[in-house]
């Protein structure tokens, strides 16, 4: 997804997608991280959550 969003992005530069550096620098600050962790958000309201799927609705 990162390579699609930013074609010049090279995960290898930060040790790969599984590296701590990538997770810290790119994944954790992202909206995807907020969604995946089920965070409460300002622009999106969580309307469904179970062990497999989360669904948000734009406020």
């Amino acid at each position: 997804m990162y390579m699609t969003a930013w074609p010049d992005f090279k995960a290898g530069d930060v040790g790969g997608f599984q590296s701590k550096a990538f997770i810290k620098e790119y994944y954790e600050p992202s909206v995807a991280y907020m969604f995946n962790t089920g965070a409460e958000m300002e622009y999106f309201e969580k309307i469904f959550e179970n062990e497999d799927v989360l669904i948000y609705e734009l406020r």
């Binding site: 699609t4 969003a5 930013w6 600050p29 909206v31 999106f44």
Partner: peptide, 12 residues
């Protein structure tokens, strides 16, 4: 992709 990789909710 940019929606999910955005770092601000506003951009998303």
């Amino acid at each position: 992709s940019r929606f999910f990789t955005a770092t601000s909710e506003e951009t998303a």
